[in-house]
């Protein structure tokens, strides 16, 4: 199912959370809402779910206006940031909940519910946990159970609020790949909220970068990374150095700088204050001689090994690609 968001505005008292948001989510896509905390991404997700209503604007599912439809009738699956598993129910009962609360006419039989729940638990590879209670599970397991529960109602849209936010780094990475594969299997239209650019770049088909209640850019991970539309997007996705240029403030990624021992026409003099040499990349910290600002540079290990810069050495840097907005 496709989602169309048209001219959504939402404020809380004095605070304007969303300003004139327009967005198209094609059917079957996995979309990331990416932005710093307080940018309105969670509010937008909750408006799509029907947990909150916009002050103005419309939400269309497959072209049908659902702005005023109750959350219960939207057939969305929502995975909460802290999972919101029902702690007094077993894993099985949690997943079965959405089926059990259906009106009698459409409620599946107990046997069907059992079959369906076990299918879902197999899908998230946690069938063996059916009789446990949520507090007995690890964070990653809770996350997957929350997902299975959301999928039980056969949602047309899957919404995930910071799905990996509460997990530690290792589990987060595994779950990210797993979610990507799961989406490729199910092809349900999915939107997830994150403040972690790496997460969005790795998992999503499309990234929506948001800031201060507005959409800064929509595009594929490659597009938003390589062709950022605004300085905010550029700064938010990856490390960046700022340079003053005649046209205004220019941005340069750390790997887009050439370092040498001899000056050239456009080079800037500086002192190498720190060398961080672990892994395939070597990171240099250079203090500019003219304005005492620090510049981060990343070199490939081979490049670094050829020149063998030493800490404290006088060097010259030349940006080979400056972006000015």
């Amino acid at each position: 199912m496709s989602i169309s968001i048209q001219h959504i505005n939402k404020g809380f008292g004095q605070f304007s959370a969303l300003r004139d948001i327009n967005l198209q989510v094609p059917s079957g896509e996995l979309v990331a809402l990416l932005g710093p905390s307080g940018c309105g991404k969670t509010t937008l997700l909750r408006i799509i779910a029907g947990l909150e209503s916009p002050d103005s604007g419309q939400v269309l599912f497959d072209g049908v206006d659902t702005t005023h439809r109750d959350v219960r009738e939207r057939q969305v699956g929502f995975v909460f940031q802290h999972y919101a598993l029902f702690r007094h129910m077993t894993v099985f009962e949690n997943v079965a909940f959405g089926l059990r609360v259906r009106p009698k006419a459409t409620r599946p039989s107990d046997a069907e519910i059992k079959k369906r729940v076990h299918e879902l638990l197999s899908l998230v590879q946690l069938d063996w946990l059916a009789d446990r209670y949520p507090p007995q599970l690890s964070g990653g397991q809770r996350q997957r159970i929350a997902l299975a529960r959301a999928l039980a109602v056969e949602p047309k849209v899957l919404l995930l609020d910071e799905p990996f936010g509460a997990l530690d780094a290792k589990v987060r990475k595994d779950l990210r790949r797993w979610l990507r594969r799961l989406h490729d299997e199910l092809h349900v239209t999915s939107v997830f909220v994150t403040h972690d650019q790496e997460e969005a770049l790795e998992v999503a088909d499309t990234i929506v970068v948001m800031n201060h209640g507005q959409v800064e850019q929509v595009g594929t991970p490659q597009a938003v990374y390589d062709q950022p539309a605004t300085s905010f997007v550029y700064e938010f996705l990856g490390n960046v150095n700022a340079f003053e240029t005649p046209q205004g403030k220019g941005f340069v990624r750390p790997y887009e700088i050439v370092v040498s021992r001899s000056p050239s026409t456009d080079s800037i003099a500086g002192q190498l204050t720190y060398v961080h040499s672990v892994g395939s990349l070597v990171r240099l910290e250079i203090k500019r001689a003219d304005n005492a600002q620090y510049v981060d540079v990343e070199l490939g290990r081979e490049v670094f090994n050829q020149s063998q810069f030493a800490q404290g050495e006088q060097v010259f840097i030349t940006p080979n690609r400056i972006r000015v907005f």
């Binding site: 008292g13 959370a17 905390s37 307080g38 940018c39 969670t42 509010t43 909750r46 947990l51 909150e52």
Partner: peptide
């Protein structure tokens, strides 16, 4: 300010 308003917002909503 933003996070506070957001928490407040979440509560109301």
């Amino acid at each position: 300010h933003a996070t506070q308003s957001q928490q407040y917002a979440a509560k109301i909503a």
